[in-house]
């Protein structure tokens, strides 16, 4: 039974939309089960310049932690049908098959994200992980973006969508919602997965995981300080 409310938490380059129906332990599990996968993939590969290998490792860690991944998808093409054509909208569009009953509140959550000021600490932290601009002599500068949205429902069940982009466009501080010029995008990869956490497996590693992540959690996890009631 969903009460149709969500809270927002940043973990690495991922915006988690956590159902208010999760209890405290489930919220913690959802965050830790994401953060470990993100940290390990980031320890082995660079999110933005080795994205393909990074993502493969990231998904392998999910399976290893007890995530039963029931569906995955990947598209490599510049998708022009997404309107508006912004990093946030592309990732949102990739969520695709959301339960219809949750759409109104999830759309409200999207509006709240779009309305956050660019100076919000969580958006600053997201930009530090999810965005980079590189410039080599004699070559047009390239901006890379990697962003994930993850809806977490009781169960734990997850619907996740991510986008990886390379563009020659110069992006501003409000890059998350900045319209992209299609002709400047040289690469676009959208991925999604659906899964649920195998509770019997996760129960055996919960304490180990909490202990290992304790010193790092505060560096990479940040609430977006949006009142749950307003979502």
């Amino acid at each position: 039974m969903h009460t149709k409310r969500f809270s927002l938490v940043l973990s690495g380059n991922c915006l988690l939309l956590l159902s208010a129906d999760l209890d405290d332990q489930q919220r913690q599990d959802a965050i830790d089960a994401h953060l470990f996968c993100w940290l390990n993939a980031s320890a082995e590969f660079l999110l933005l310049s080795e994205n393909q290998q990074w993502h493969g490792t990231y998904m392998d860690r999910h399976t290893g932690l007890g995530w039963v991944v029931s569906a995955t998808g990947e598209r490599i093409n510049v998708e022009t049908a997404t309107v508006p054509f912004t990093p946030l909208a592309i990732a949102w569009h990739g969520l695709g098959s959301l339960p219809a009953s949750l759409l109104p509140t999830l759309n409200a959550a999207l509006t709240m994200i779009q309305a956050l000021p660019e100076t919000h600490p969580a958006l600053q932290a997201l930009g530090a992980e999810a965005l980079e601009r590189t410039q080599a002599p004699g070559v047009k500068p390239v901006t890379r973006i990697a962003l994930e949205l993850r809806v977490v429902l009781p169960g734990l069940k997850v619907l996740a969508s991510s986008v990886f982009l390379e563009t020659h466009q110069c992006l501003e501080r409000q890059w998350l919602t900045q319209p992209l010029e299609i002709e400047e995008v040289s690469r676009q990869v959208t991925r999604n997965f659906t899964g649920e956490l195998f509770p019997d497996v996760f129960a055996g590693i919960r304490t180990l995981l909490e202990t290992r992540l304790e010193p790092l959690r505060a560096m990479y996890v940040m609430p977006l300080n949006v009142r749950e009631d307003s979502l």
Binding site: F36, L39, N40, S42, A43, E44, F45, L46, L48, S49, R61, G64, L65, G66, E132, F198, D200, V201, F202, G204, I205, L208, L209, R212, L213, L216
Partner: peptide, 23 residues
């Protein structure tokens, strides 16, 4: 079945590096 996946999970949690690479 659960144990096989579980053993792999414990091994991953205990041994996989979690310090992000520096750009």
């Amino acid at each position: 079945l659960i144990q096989r996946v579980g053993d792999k999970s414990k091994n991953d949690v205990l041994t996989k590096p979690i310090e992000p690479k520096k750009r």
